[in-house]
Write a protein that binds this DNA or RNA. Structure first.
Length: 275
RNA sequence: GGCGUUGUAGCUCAGUUGGUAGAGCAGCGGACUGAAAAUCCGUGUGUCAUUGGUUCAAUUCCAAUCAAUGCCA
């Protein structure tokens, strides 16, 4: 499992490792899996994809609902199959939650109905807090009470299962039937920032604006709520210039990279390598 | 050259009917079990352009200066 912040060089590194081990790559990336997103999510190039077999790159549409559990199910099945013909498989990705789901599993829970999600989404924060406090005081105690997404999610699960959220997610971590070695790629902050800026400029040259423009009809779908896309949509709305939008993409990518680092830093089993 | 307007945090700006000031963004740190490139939390002293004047007290009122900008010549 290879993790690390955006633009640190995971793609190239993973390909190198996979070639050396004569195996294939399973991606854990919550955006590169969409076939409609290419330039803005830094999908590996045709050459790169051709040099080593990749799984879960551009394998589904932003139009279909997707989530980390579906990913975990599909990816685990794929990995089991790969282990029939390979001793080792390379996994790589910057989506910490997806990587975690692959390494240690995730609770089996029913999806909320669209009606339920819409119903809870309409509730004000204090109402969400009140309900969760009543239905699952233990989780209410430790959840981020200001975060509507967290509160909504817990209430969805409670409604779907009839059990407290804190109970259904307890002890869902499992040992996989294979050894996992985690490698974290990092580099000095100023170097990472340069790489992010350079990559964003490159995306612009490759036609990021056109890619985003062509996705305008789909812009309200969650997968389009993504760094590199939302800033360009704003530009197409006329709220800012292309130059401003591009510099926002750079800034937001940097912020994203820092969030990734703070997520990965918690995992003490990661072996860090400067790249 | 004349008449205005503006000059406050890295940026965009609010504000103080005179008692030395605060938002958004950025920066920095953090959380995270089906939205995760998402979502959320914490963190704000800066010669309030400069120099004088009035005042117990000026970033706030007055004057001059400098800079930016607009209109007229």
């Amino acid at each position: 499992m290879i993790v690390g912040p955006t633009a640190v060089g995971k793609t190239v590194y993973a390909i190198k490792v996979a070639k050396m081990l004569d195996t294939e790559i399973v991606s854990c990336d919550s955006r590169q899996c969409y076939c409609e997103l290419r330039i803005g999510v830094a999908r590996p190039s045709e050459d790169e994809l051709g040099s080593v077999k990749h799984h879960f790159i551009a394998n589904r549409s932003v139009r279909e609902p997707y989530n980390v559990f579906t990913y975990e199910q599909e990816a685990m099945e794929r990995i089991h199959n790969l282990f029939n013909s390979h001793d080792i498989v390379v996994a790589v990705g910057g989506s910490g939650l997806y990587a975690d789901a692959l390494c240690q599993g995730i609770a089996l829970l029913p999806d909320p109905t669209p009606e339920l999600r819409a119903e809870l989404q309409a509730l004000p924060l204090d109402e969400l807090q009140g309900r969760l406090k009543a239905l699952d005081p233990a989780y209410f105690e430790r959840v981020d009470k200001q975060n509507p997404v967290r509160l909504q999610r817990a209430l969805e699960v409670i409604r779907m299962t009839g059990r407290p959220y804190s109970e259904v997610i307890r002890q869902t971590k499992m040992k996989r039937p294979f050894e996992i070695e985690k490698i974290g790629l990092y580099c000095q902050p100023h170097i990472l920032r340069e790489r992010i800026d350079r990559r964003a400029s490159l995306m612009a040259e490759e036609g990021l604006v056109e890619e985003v423009r062509s996705l305008t009809p789909l812009r309200n779908l969650q997968p389009l709520n993504t760094v590199g896309y939302k800033e360009i949509f704003a530009m197409l709305d006329g709220t800012c210039t292309e130059e401003t939008a591009l510099s926002a993409v750079k800034t937001h990518s940097w912020q994203y990279a820092k969030k990734q680092m703070s997520y990965f830093k918690r995992d003490k089993s990661i072996l860090w390598k400067e790249n």
